[in-house]
Nucleic acid binder design. Structure first.
Lengths: 212, 212
DNA sequence: TCGTTGTTGTGAAATGATTCACATATCTTC
DNA sequence: GAAGATATGTGAATCATTTCACAACAACGA
Protein backbone atom coordinates (compact mmCIF):
# COMPACT_ATOMS: atom_id res chain seq x y z
CA UNK A 1 0.00 0.00 0.00
CA UNK A 2 2.20 2.79 -1.29
CA UNK A 3 0.72 5.67 0.75
CA UNK A 4 -1.15 8.19 -1.31
CA UNK A 5 0.97 11.19 -2.28
CA UNK A 6 -0.35 14.64 -2.99
CA UNK A 7 0.48 16.55 -6.12
CA UNK A 8 3.34 18.54 -4.60
CA UNK A 9 5.01 15.36 -3.47
CA UNK A 10 4.53 13.87 -6.89
CA UNK A 11 6.33 16.83 -8.44
CA UNK A 12 9.33 16.04 -6.25
CA UNK A 13 9.18 12.45 -7.32
CA UNK A 14 9.02 13.30 -11.00
CA UNK A 15 12.08 15.41 -10.46
CA UNK A 16 13.95 12.61 -8.81
CA UNK A 17 13.09 10.05 -11.48
CA UNK A 18 14.00 12.53 -14.21
CA UNK A 19 17.48 12.92 -12.74
CA UNK A 20 17.93 9.18 -12.74
CA UNK A 21 16.83 8.90 -16.35
CA UNK A 22 19.08 11.75 -17.30
CA UNK A 23 22.03 10.06 -15.61
CA UNK A 24 21.22 6.99 -17.69
CA UNK A 25 21.61 9.09 -20.80
CA UNK A 26 17.97 9.70 -21.66
CA UNK A 27 17.03 13.00 -23.22
CA UNK A 28 13.29 12.57 -23.63
CA UNK A 29 10.70 10.82 -21.56
CA UNK A 30 7.06 9.74 -21.97
CA UNK A 31 4.29 10.01 -19.47
CA UNK A 32 4.13 6.25 -19.21
CA UNK A 33 7.82 5.95 -18.35
CA UNK A 34 7.23 8.22 -15.40
CA UNK A 35 4.03 6.41 -14.58
CA UNK A 36 5.78 3.05 -14.53
CA UNK A 37 8.61 4.35 -12.39
CA UNK A 38 6.25 5.77 -9.77
CA UNK A 39 3.28 3.43 -10.08
CA UNK A 40 1.00 6.16 -11.37
CA UNK A 41 -1.17 6.15 -14.45
CA UNK A 42 0.31 8.00 -17.41
CA UNK A 43 -2.86 10.09 -17.51
CA UNK A 44 -2.21 11.38 -14.03
CA UNK A 45 1.33 12.32 -14.96
CA UNK A 46 0.03 14.31 -17.90
CA UNK A 47 -2.70 15.96 -15.82
CA UNK A 48 -0.15 16.98 -13.21
CA UNK A 49 2.14 18.42 -15.85
CA UNK A 50 -0.62 20.24 -17.62
CA UNK A 51 -1.73 21.81 -14.34
CA UNK A 52 1.69 23.42 -14.04
CA UNK A 53 2.05 24.18 -17.72
CA UNK A 54 4.82 21.67 -18.14
CA UNK A 55 4.39 20.81 -21.76
CA UNK A 56 5.76 18.17 -24.07
CA UNK A 57 5.23 17.33 -27.68
CA UNK A 58 2.93 14.81 -29.17
CA UNK A 59 4.68 11.72 -30.36
CA UNK A 60 7.97 12.99 -28.93
CA UNK A 61 7.27 13.18 -25.23
CA UNK A 62 8.89 15.60 -22.81
CA UNK A 63 12.42 17.01 -22.91
CA UNK A 64 14.04 15.96 -19.65
CA UNK A 65 16.25 19.03 -19.32
CA UNK A 66 13.39 21.37 -19.97
CA UNK A 67 11.16 19.56 -17.50
CA UNK A 68 13.87 19.57 -14.86
CA UNK A 69 14.57 23.25 -15.29
CA UNK A 70 10.90 24.06 -14.84
CA UNK A 71 10.42 21.66 -11.92
CA UNK A 72 13.49 23.01 -10.18
CA UNK A 73 12.18 26.52 -10.47
CA UNK A 74 8.75 25.45 -9.28
CA UNK A 75 10.18 23.63 -6.28
CA UNK A 76 12.60 26.41 -5.42
CA UNK A 77 15.55 24.17 -6.23
CA UNK A 78 17.23 26.87 -8.28
CA UNK A 79 18.65 28.39 -5.12
CA UNK A 80 19.98 26.84 -1.92
CA UNK A 81 17.21 26.40 0.61
CA UNK A 82 18.36 27.52 4.03
CA UNK A 83 16.84 26.09 7.18
CA UNK A 84 17.53 26.03 10.92
CA UNK A 85 17.04 23.29 13.48
CA UNK A 86 15.44 24.10 16.81
CA UNK A 87 16.27 21.62 19.54
CA UNK A 88 19.71 20.07 19.46
CA UNK A 89 19.17 16.86 21.39
CA UNK A 90 19.83 13.47 19.86
CA UNK A 91 17.42 13.83 16.97
CA UNK A 92 18.28 17.46 16.34
CA UNK A 93 21.98 16.70 16.19
CA UNK A 94 21.46 13.67 13.98
CA UNK A 95 19.59 15.93 11.58
CA UNK A 96 22.33 18.56 11.72
CA UNK A 97 24.72 16.08 10.19
CA UNK A 98 22.16 14.40 7.95
CA UNK A 99 23.75 13.90 4.57
CA UNK A 100 20.46 13.81 2.70
CA UNK A 101 20.11 17.60 2.92
CA UNK A 102 23.17 18.64 0.93
CA UNK A 103 22.12 16.40 -1.93
CA UNK A 104 18.79 18.22 -2.07
CA UNK A 105 20.27 21.70 -2.01
CA UNK A 106 19.16 22.23 1.58
CA UNK A 107 21.58 23.91 3.93
CA UNK A 108 21.27 23.85 7.71
CA UNK A 109 22.68 27.21 8.76
CA UNK A 110 22.28 27.02 12.54
CA UNK A 111 20.87 25.13 15.48
CA UNK A 112 19.03 26.63 18.42
CA UNK A 113 18.59 25.38 21.97
CA UNK A 114 18.00 26.67 25.47
CA UNK A 115 20.47 24.32 27.15
CA UNK A 116 23.77 26.20 27.77
CA UNK A 117 25.66 22.90 27.60
CA UNK A 118 25.01 22.50 23.90
CA UNK A 119 25.12 26.15 22.85
CA UNK A 120 28.25 26.88 20.85
CA UNK A 121 28.08 29.94 18.61
CA UNK A 122 31.55 29.42 17.19
CA UNK A 123 31.21 25.88 15.89
CA UNK A 124 31.32 25.46 12.12
CA UNK A 125 27.62 24.85 12.37
CA UNK A 126 26.77 27.22 15.22
CA UNK A 127 24.30 26.32 17.95
CA UNK A 128 22.75 29.50 19.28
CA UNK A 129 20.58 30.46 22.21
CA UNK A 130 16.91 30.32 21.38
CA UNK A 131 16.68 33.94 22.59
CA UNK A 132 18.49 35.01 19.45
CA UNK A 133 16.07 33.19 17.20
CA UNK A 134 13.88 36.00 15.90
CA UNK A 135 16.62 38.46 14.93
CA UNK A 136 18.76 35.70 13.39
CA UNK A 137 15.92 34.41 11.23
CA UNK A 138 15.13 37.92 10.09
CA UNK A 139 18.75 38.79 9.36
CA UNK A 140 19.37 35.59 7.39
CA UNK A 141 16.03 35.51 5.64
CA UNK A 142 15.17 31.98 6.82
CA UNK A 143 11.59 30.82 6.27
CA UNK A 144 11.68 27.14 7.28
CA UNK A 145 12.64 25.45 10.55
CA UNK A 146 12.81 21.91 11.84
CA UNK A 147 11.59 21.43 15.42
CA UNK A 148 13.12 18.53 17.31
CA UNK A 149 12.35 19.39 20.92
CA UNK A 150 10.86 17.31 23.76
CA UNK A 151 7.10 17.20 23.69
CA UNK A 152 6.69 19.25 26.85
CA UNK A 153 8.66 22.12 25.29
CA UNK A 154 6.94 21.97 21.91
CA UNK A 155 4.15 24.45 22.53
CA UNK A 156 6.44 27.11 24.03
CA UNK A 157 9.01 26.76 21.30
CA UNK A 158 6.31 26.94 18.69
CA UNK A 159 5.28 30.30 20.11
CA UNK A 160 8.80 31.54 19.53
CA UNK A 161 8.75 30.34 15.94
CA UNK A 162 5.35 31.81 15.32
CA UNK A 163 6.52 35.14 16.65
CA UNK A 164 9.24 35.13 14.00
CA UNK A 165 9.43 35.29 10.23
CA UNK A 166 9.27 31.49 10.02
CA UNK A 167 6.57 30.34 7.60
CA UNK A 168 6.97 26.57 7.63
CA UNK A 169 7.86 24.09 10.37
CA UNK A 170 8.69 20.42 10.21
CA UNK A 171 7.82 19.14 13.67
CA UNK A 172 9.33 15.96 15.09
CA UNK A 173 7.92 16.39 18.58
CA UNK A 174 5.28 13.74 19.26
CA UNK A 175 2.61 16.39 19.72
CA UNK A 176 0.48 17.44 16.78
CA UNK A 177 0.91 21.18 16.43
CA UNK A 178 -1.39 23.56 14.70
CA UNK A 179 -0.07 26.36 12.52
CA UNK A 180 -1.79 29.67 12.08
CA UNK A 181 -2.63 31.78 9.09
CA UNK A 182 0.96 32.46 8.20
CA UNK A 183 2.76 29.37 9.41
CA UNK A 184 2.40 25.90 7.90
CA UNK A 185 3.23 22.95 10.10
CA UNK A 186 4.05 19.46 8.99
CA UNK A 187 4.01 16.98 11.87
CA UNK A 188 6.14 13.88 11.72
CA UNK A 189 5.31 11.64 14.61
CA UNK A 190 7.45 8.58 14.37
CA UNK A 191 5.48 6.66 16.98
CA UNK A 192 2.35 7.33 15.00
CA UNK A 193 3.92 6.17 11.78
CA UNK A 194 4.83 2.90 13.46
CA UNK A 195 1.34 2.58 14.86
CA UNK A 196 0.04 3.07 11.36
CA UNK A 197 2.29 0.41 9.94
CA UNK A 198 0.99 -2.07 12.52
CA UNK A 199 -2.50 -1.16 11.48
CA UNK A 200 -1.85 -1.60 7.76
CA UNK A 201 0.03 -4.84 8.30
CA UNK A 202 -2.87 -6.10 10.37
CA UNK A 203 -5.47 -5.33 7.72
CA UNK A 204 -3.23 -5.78 4.68
CA UNK A 205 -5.46 -3.99 2.28
CA UNK A 206 -9.01 -4.95 3.25
CA UNK A 207 -10.75 -2.45 5.46
CA UNK A 208 -13.65 -2.27 7.82
CA UNK A 209 -13.34 -5.78 9.22
CA UNK A 210 -13.88 -6.50 12.87
CA UNK A 211 -11.15 -8.24 14.81
CA UNK A 212 -11.70 -11.97 14.40
CA UNK B 1 -2.59 23.48 5.21
CA UNK B 2 -2.85 20.65 7.72
CA UNK B 3 -1.84 17.78 5.39
CA UNK B 4 -4.63 15.39 4.58
CA UNK B 5 -4.72 12.37 6.86
CA UNK B 6 -6.10 8.99 5.90
CA UNK B 7 -8.63 7.15 7.99
CA UNK B 8 -6.08 5.01 9.84
CA UNK B 9 -4.20 8.10 10.89
CA UNK B 10 -7.40 9.69 12.03
CA UNK B 11 -8.13 6.72 14.25
CA UNK B 12 -4.81 7.31 15.98
CA UNK B 13 -5.68 10.94 16.41
CA UNK B 14 -9.07 10.20 17.88
CA UNK B 15 -7.35 7.95 20.34
CA UNK B 16 -4.91 10.64 21.32
CA UNK B 17 -7.49 13.35 21.92
CA UNK B 18 -9.72 10.90 23.78
CA UNK B 19 -6.88 10.30 26.23
CA UNK B 20 -6.52 14.02 26.73
CA UNK B 21 -10.23 14.46 27.34
CA UNK B 22 -10.23 11.54 29.71
CA UNK B 23 -7.32 13.08 31.64
CA UNK B 24 -9.42 16.23 31.90
CA UNK B 25 -12.13 14.24 33.57
CA UNK B 26 -14.53 13.79 30.68
CA UNK B 27 -16.50 10.58 30.47
CA UNK B 28 -18.50 11.17 27.32
CA UNK B 29 -17.71 12.97 24.10
CA UNK B 30 -19.65 14.19 21.07
CA UNK B 31 -18.61 13.95 17.47
CA UNK B 32 -18.26 17.70 17.28
CA UNK B 33 -15.86 17.83 20.22
CA UNK B 34 -13.58 15.49 18.33
CA UNK B 35 -14.18 17.40 15.14
CA UNK B 36 -13.21 20.69 16.77
CA UNK B 37 -10.09 19.19 18.31
CA UNK B 38 -8.86 17.80 15.01
CA UNK B 39 -10.35 20.28 12.54
CA UNK B 40 -12.62 17.68 11.01
CA UNK B 41 -16.33 17.88 10.42
CA UNK B 42 -18.42 16.07 13.02
CA UNK B 43 -20.02 14.13 10.19
CA UNK B 44 -16.67 12.69 9.21
CA UNK B 45 -15.98 11.64 12.76
CA UNK B 46 -19.29 9.79 12.87
CA UNK B 47 -18.72 8.19 9.46
CA UNK B 48 -15.30 6.98 10.56
CA UNK B 49 -16.71 5.53 13.74
CA UNK B 50 -19.59 3.89 12.01
CA UNK B 51 -17.21 2.25 9.54
CA UNK B 52 -15.51 0.50 12.44
CA UNK B 53 -18.68 -0.18 14.36
CA UNK B 54 -17.75 2.25 17.09
CA UNK B 55 -21.15 3.25 18.31
CA UNK B 56 -22.46 5.90 20.61
CA UNK B 57 -25.89 6.85 21.82
CA UNK B 58 -28.14 9.48 20.46
CA UNK B 59 -28.30 12.57 22.61
CA UNK B 60 -25.62 11.16 24.89
CA UNK B 61 -22.62 10.85 22.61
CA UNK B 62 -19.84 8.30 22.95
CA UNK B 63 -18.44 6.73 26.13
CA UNK B 64 -14.76 7.62 26.16
CA UNK B 65 -13.63 4.46 27.91
CA UNK B 66 -15.57 2.25 25.58
CA UNK B 67 -14.25 4.07 22.54
CA UNK B 68 -10.68 3.87 23.79
CA UNK B 69 -10.93 0.18 24.52
CA UNK B 70 -12.19 -0.49 21.01
CA UNK B 71 -9.68 1.84 19.34
CA UNK B 72 -6.83 0.31 21.28
CA UNK B 73 -7.81 -3.13 20.16
CA UNK B 74 -8.21 -1.96 16.59
CA UNK B 75 -4.81 -0.30 16.58
CA UNK B 76 -3.09 -3.18 18.30
CA UNK B 77 -2.41 -1.06 21.38
CA UNK B 78 -3.63 -3.76 23.72
CA UNK B 79 -0.22 -5.41 23.55
CA UNK B 80 3.30 -4.00 23.38
CA UNK B 81 4.38 -3.52 19.80
CA UNK B 82 7.91 -4.76 19.30
CA UNK B 83 10.14 -3.35 16.59
CA UNK B 84 13.79 -3.40 15.56
CA UNK B 85 16.00 -0.72 14.08
CA UNK B 86 18.25 -1.54 11.16
CA UNK B 87 21.16 0.83 10.76
CA UNK B 88 22.67 2.25 13.94
CA UNK B 89 24.29 5.42 12.69
CA UNK B 90 23.32 8.81 14.04
CA UNK B 91 19.67 8.63 13.14
CA UNK B 92 19.34 4.98 14.08
CA UNK B 93 20.85 5.60 17.49
CA UNK B 94 18.76 8.70 18.06
CA UNK B 95 15.70 6.58 17.37
CA UNK B 96 16.91 3.84 19.71
CA UNK B 97 16.68 6.27 22.58
CA UNK B 98 13.62 8.11 21.32
CA UNK B 99 11.29 8.62 24.23
CA UNK B 100 8.18 8.87 22.10
CA UNK B 101 8.07 5.11 21.60
CA UNK B 102 7.58 4.00 25.19
CA UNK B 103 4.65 6.35 25.57
CA UNK B 104 2.99 4.67 22.60
CA UNK B 105 3.56 1.14 23.81
CA UNK B 106 6.27 0.56 21.22
CA UNK B 107 9.38 -1.27 22.33
CA UNK B 108 12.63 -1.30 20.39
CA UNK B 109 14.06 -4.75 21.11
CA UNK B 110 17.28 -4.63 19.11
CA UNK B 111 19.38 -2.75 16.60
CA UNK B 112 21.17 -4.25 13.61
CA UNK B 113 24.20 -3.08 11.72
CA UNK B 114 27.04 -4.42 9.61
CA UNK B 115 29.73 -2.23 11.14
CA UNK B 116 31.66 -4.25 13.79
CA UNK B 117 32.46 -1.03 15.63
CA UNK B 118 28.87 -0.49 16.70
CA UNK B 119 27.82 -4.13 17.16
CA UNK B 120 27.38 -4.93 20.83
CA UNK B 121 25.15 -7.91 21.59
CA UNK B 122 25.40 -7.48 25.34
CA UNK B 123 24.24 -3.90 25.70
CA UNK B 124 20.91 -3.40 27.45
CA UNK B 125 19.54 -2.66 24.03
CA UNK B 126 21.65 -5.06 21.96
CA UNK B 127 23.05 -4.15 18.57
CA UNK B 128 23.45 -7.29 16.52
CA UNK B 129 25.10 -8.22 13.26
CA UNK B 130 22.75 -7.92 10.34
CA UNK B 131 23.60 -11.56 9.50
CA UNK B 132 21.51 -12.63 12.49
CA UNK B 133 18.51 -10.66 11.34
CA UNK B 134 16.28 -13.36 9.87
CA UNK B 135 16.50 -15.88 12.70
CA UNK B 136 16.17 -13.18 15.36
CA UNK B 137 13.04 -11.73 13.79
CA UNK B 138 11.51 -15.16 13.50
CA UNK B 139 12.39 -16.17 17.05
CA UNK B 140 11.04 -12.95 18.53
CA UNK B 141 8.00 -12.68 16.30
CA UNK B 142 8.85 -9.16 15.10
CA UNK B 143 6.82 -7.85 12.17
CA UNK B 144 7.92 -4.20 11.89
CA UNK B 145 11.35 -2.64 11.35
CA UNK B 146 12.73 0.86 11.02
CA UNK B 147 15.43 1.30 8.38
CA UNK B 148 17.92 4.08 8.98
CA UNK B 149 20.79 3.17 6.69
CA UNK B 150 22.77 5.24 4.17
CA UNK B 151 21.08 5.49 0.81
CA UNK B 152 23.64 3.37 -0.98
CA UNK B 153 22.99 0.49 1.40
CA UNK B 154 19.21 0.79 1.33
CA UNK B 155 18.45 -1.60 -1.50
CA UNK B 156 20.68 -4.39 -0.18
CA UNK B 157 19.36 -4.06 3.35
CA UNK B 158 15.82 -4.07 2.06
CA UNK B 159 16.52 -7.43 0.44
CA UNK B 160 17.51 -8.78 3.83
CA UNK B 161 14.29 -7.48 5.38
CA UNK B 162 12.17 -8.82 2.56
CA UNK B 163 13.77 -12.22 2.94
CA UNK B 164 12.59 -12.24 6.56
CA UNK B 165 9.27 -12.31 8.37
CA UNK B 166 9.17 -8.51 8.41
CA UNK B 167 5.85 -7.21 7.08
CA UNK B 168 6.20 -3.46 7.51
CA UNK B 169 9.15 -1.08 7.17
CA UNK B 170 9.51 2.56 8.07
CA UNK B 171 12.29 3.78 5.80
CA UNK B 172 14.36 6.86 6.63
CA UNK B 173 16.86 6.41 3.83
CA UNK B 174 16.44 9.13 1.22
CA UNK B 175 15.55 6.58 -1.45
CA UNK B 176 11.96 5.70 -2.10
CA UNK B 177 11.67 1.96 -1.66
CA UNK B 178 9.01 -0.29 -3.04
CA UNK B 179 7.51 -3.08 -0.96
CA UNK B 180 6.21 -6.29 -2.40
CA UNK B 181 3.09 -8.32 -1.87
CA UNK B 182 3.83 -9.11 1.71
CA UNK B 183 5.84 -6.12 2.87
CA UNK B 184 4.48 -2.62 3.29
CA UNK B 185 6.93 0.25 3.15
CA UNK B 186 6.43 3.74 4.45
CA UNK B 187 9.10 6.14 3.23
CA UNK B 188 10.03 9.15 5.28
CA UNK B 189 12.36 11.36 3.32
CA UNK B 190 13.21 14.34 5.44
CA UNK B 191 14.77 16.27 2.59
CA UNK B 192 11.61 15.77 0.62
CA UNK B 193 9.44 16.96 3.47
CA UNK B 194 11.48 20.14 3.62
CA UNK B 195 11.22 20.56 -0.12
CA UNK B 196 7.50 20.21 0.25
CA UNK B 197 7.30 22.81 2.95
CA UNK B 198 9.13 25.27 0.73
CA UNK B 199 6.64 24.52 -1.98
CA UNK B 200 3.62 25.02 0.24
CA UNK B 201 5.04 28.17 1.78
CA UNK B 202 5.68 29.50 -1.70
CA UNK B 203 2.12 28.90 -2.86
CA UNK B 204 0.42 29.35 0.50
CA UNK B 205 -2.80 27.67 -0.42
CA UNK B 206 -3.51 28.75 -4.00
CA UNK B 207 -2.41 26.32 -6.62
CA UNK B 208 -1.68 26.20 -10.28
CA UNK B 209 -0.15 29.65 -10.53
CA UNK B 210 2.87 30.28 -12.66
CA UNK B 211 5.90 31.85 -11.04
CA UNK B 212 5.46 35.61 -11.27
C1' DT C 1 -46.84 11.25 30.28
C1' DC C 2 -45.66 14.09 26.65
C1' DG C 3 -43.50 17.57 24.21
C1' DT C 4 -38.86 19.64 23.52
C1' DT C 5 -34.11 19.37 22.77
C1' DG C 6 -29.95 17.52 21.07
C1' DT C 7 -27.18 13.87 19.06
C1' DT C 8 -26.40 9.76 16.52
C1' DG C 9 -26.29 6.97 12.20
C1' DT C 10 -26.74 6.98 7.44
C1' DG C 11 -28.66 7.48 2.75
C1' DA C 12 -28.20 11.11 -0.74
C1' DA C 13 -25.72 15.11 -2.56
C1' DA C 14 -21.54 17.52 -3.32
C1' DT C 15 -16.95 17.83 -3.96
C1' DG C 16 -12.43 16.22 -5.26
C1' DA C 17 -9.17 13.14 -7.50
C1' DT C 18 -8.14 9.87 -11.03
C1' DT C 19 -8.83 7.50 -15.25
C1' DC C 20 -10.84 7.10 -19.90
C1' DA C 21 -10.99 8.15 -24.47
C1' DC C 22 -10.18 10.63 -28.30
C1' DA C 23 -9.13 14.68 -31.30
C1' DT C 24 -4.86 16.62 -32.47
C1' DA C 25 -0.14 17.07 -33.47
C1' DT C 26 4.41 15.27 -34.67
C1' DC C 27 7.56 12.01 -36.42
C1' DT C 28 8.77 8.14 -39.69
C1' DT C 29 8.65 5.63 -43.75
C1' DC C 30 7.73 4.81 -48.30
C1' DG D 1 4.22 14.30 -49.42
C1' DA D 2 0.66 11.03 -48.03
C1' DA D 3 -0.24 7.20 -44.85
C1' DG D 4 0.65 5.13 -40.61
C1' DA D 5 2.14 5.02 -35.94
C1' DT D 6 2.50 7.09 -31.51
C1' DA D 7 2.02 10.55 -27.57
C1' DT D 8 0.16 14.61 -25.82
C1' DG D 9 -3.55 17.52 -23.72
C1' DT D 10 -8.01 17.65 -22.06
C1' DG D 11 -13.20 17.30 -21.55
C1' DA D 12 -16.18 13.75 -19.91
C1' DA D 13 -16.85 9.68 -17.07
C1' DT D 14 -15.71 7.21 -13.05
C1' DC D 15 -14.42 6.45 -8.52
C1' DA D 16 -13.41 8.01 -3.67
C1' DT D 17 -14.06 10.99 0.05
C1' DT D 18 -16.50 14.31 2.59
C1' DT D 19 -20.44 16.92 3.81
C1' DC D 20 -25.44 17.56 4.08
C1' DA D 21 -29.66 16.71 5.92
C1' DC D 22 -32.84 14.36 8.33
C1' DA D 23 -35.29 10.35 10.53
C1' DA D 24 -34.87 7.96 14.76
C1' DC D 25 -34.11 7.90 19.26
C1' DA D 26 -32.57 9.10 24.27
C1' DA D 27 -32.75 12.36 27.99
C1' DC D 28 -34.89 16.04 30.31
C1' DG D 29 -38.42 19.10 32.16
C1' DA D 30 -43.09 20.33 32.93
Amino acid sequence: MPMKLDIAQRLSQYRSVLYKLKALGFVRVFSDNLGDALELSPALVRKDFSLFHLTGNKRVGYQIDDLLAKLNRLLGKDKTQKIVIVGCGKIGQALMSYSGFAREGIQVVAGFDTNPAVINPHAPLPILDLKEFGPFIKREGIRIAIMAVPDNAAAQVLDVLRGSEIRGVLNFAPVPLRGGDHCIIRNINIGLEIENLFYHVKFSGKLGGRTP
